[in-house]
Simulated scan of single mutants.
Amino acid sequence: MGEFDAIRPYADAEVPAVLARLLADDAFLGILTQFRFPRLAAPLGWLLKPLIAYRLRLEFRDVSSVAQLQTRIASYVDHTIERATDGVSYSGIEHLQGGQAYLFLANHRDIVMDPAFVNYAVYHAGLPTPRIAIGDNLLQKPFVSDLMRLNKSFIVHRSISGRREKLAAYQLLSSYINHSIRVDGESIWIAQAEGRAKDGDDRTDSAILKMFHMNRKAEPFAEVINSLRLTPVSISYEYDPCDQAKARELSMRAGSGSYTKAAGEDDQSIALGITGYKGRVHVHFGAPVDQGLDDSKMLAAEMDRRILSGYRLFPVHYLAYAMWADRDPTLAVPNVAELFPAAELSAAKSEWQRRLANCPREQQPYLILQYANPVRNQYRIKAGLPL
């Protein structure tokens, strides 16, 4: 057994067997049937599932590597993105060079689509897709684990409770990330903090930056970070398909001090995040860090500055900020009408009012908060103010 077998993505030699296992998994076939034939899945699932399995076995019968698999499913991913967005744009791709591996540190808003949009950007730029960090809390079903590890995902053990066990898990994770970039030449995508930023306030957890250094503690922190080519990534959604659910959770936390997820809630968030309407999406790649910061908290602040500066603000963000009770009157935030054409602004106002109308009144402040926070953060940076 290899050192990283418990967490690593599947290797090329494992692809045929894992594909065969997936296409015999009733739960996986049920999800595909529901996605492809939502009205017929319940009454005719018994007939449709074996037909879908047969078609997919034919389509993937000659796939024997991860690269082949990603090429084969690229059109499906593109189709899914086209159905759920009004277009994806990206910038900063010129900071990435072929033949180099990078440690992409990104803001985190959606469980599956954040890394999917990064993959979309680098794949269409002709660059290799990164390996993706995913929490074990999302891999409760065997087919989900198989599916993600086939798509270059590696496991972050978050459900471990013991202090020693946690330390060992982070040490292994640190070793794997360093090995992937420095030995395998494979890039890594990881979120800047555990869990999605449900309030729209994207901040880097310095503990994650410390983790990158754990297995090379004899070397200076700044040298280790520079060797990994730490690269900030800003992922901007015009509309968040899960914004109503996030507002509900934030409201309940504010009211009771806690929130307990219902069974299957993560699965629902994943499905809604993939299929729900997002408007426009923008992915920005910053330049790799080369400042030589030796303190993880200072580096976290620098990553925040870069990620938040690279975030693209859409009309809805300014509309929400104008309604926000906690907006900062000292910030020079322009009126939205000064920034966007009338037709674009009119469409945004209509969609924003629809979302507000669908949100219970007591939860609306938390819906507004999600879209307003990026405006506050970006204009504080522009003004040279601390976040």
Rank of each mutant, 00 (worst) to 15 (best):
M1Q: 02
M1W: 11
G2V: 05
G2C: 13
E3L: 14
F4H: 04
F4C: 01
A6C: 15
I7P: 05
I7V: 04
R8Q: 12
A11S: 10
E14L: 00
A24Q: 11
L29C: 10
T33W: 01
F35N: 11
A41E: 04
L44N: 03
L56Q: 06
R57H: 07
L58Y: 11
F60H: 00
R61N: 10
V66E: 09
A67Q: 15
T71F: 03
A74E: 00
A74T: 05
Y76Q: 08
Y76I: 14
D78E: 14
V88I: 14
V88H: 00
S89R: 14
Y90V: 12
Y90A: 04
G92M: 03
G98R: 14
Q100I: 12
L105N: 13
L105M: 03
A106F: 03
H108G: 02
D110T: 07
D110Y: 09
V112T: 08
A116F: 05
V118I: 13
R131M: 08
I132G: 04
G135I: 00
D136E: 01
N137E: 08
L139M: 11
P142F: 05
V144N: 06
S145K: 07
S145Q: 06
D146K: 03
M148H: 00
F154G: 02
V156W: 00
S159G: 15
S159A: 08
S159I: 08
I160V: 15
S161Q: 14
G162L: 01
K166D: 04
L172Q: 05
Y176T: 12
I177H: 07
H179R: 00
S180I: 12
V183R: 13
D184F: 06
E186V: 15
I188R: 07
I188N: 02
I188G: 12
W189Y: 11
Q192L: 00
G195C: 09
G195T: 09
G200V: 06
D205L: 09
D205Q: 14
S206E: 13
L209P: 12
N215A: 15
K217E: 10
K217D: 06
F221D: 03
A222W: 15
E223F: 08
V224T: 15
R229P: 10
L230G: 10
P232I: 11
S234I: 00
Y239I: 00
D240M: 10
D240L: 05
C242N: 11
C242Y: 10
R248W: 01
L250P: 08
L250V: 03
S251C: 12
R253P: 06
G255N: 07
S256T: 15
S269C: 13
I270T: 08
G279S: 10
H282M: 01
H284V: 03
H284P: 10
G286F: 09
G292W: 01
D294W: 09
D294H: 13
D295R: 06
S296E: 05
A301I: 10
M303H: 09
D304S: 02
R305Q: 10
R305W: 01
S309V: 04
Y311F: 12
L313G: 05
Y321H: 00
A322G: 09
R327F: 01
D328M: 14
D328I: 08
T330A: 13
E338A: 07
A342N: 04
A343I: 13
S346W: 01
W352K: 00
Q353Y: 03
R355Q: 07
L356T: 02
A357R: 03
A357V: 12
P360D: 02
E362G: 11
L367P: 11
L369G: 01
Q370H: 14
P374E: 02
I381W: 05
K382D: 02
L385S: 06
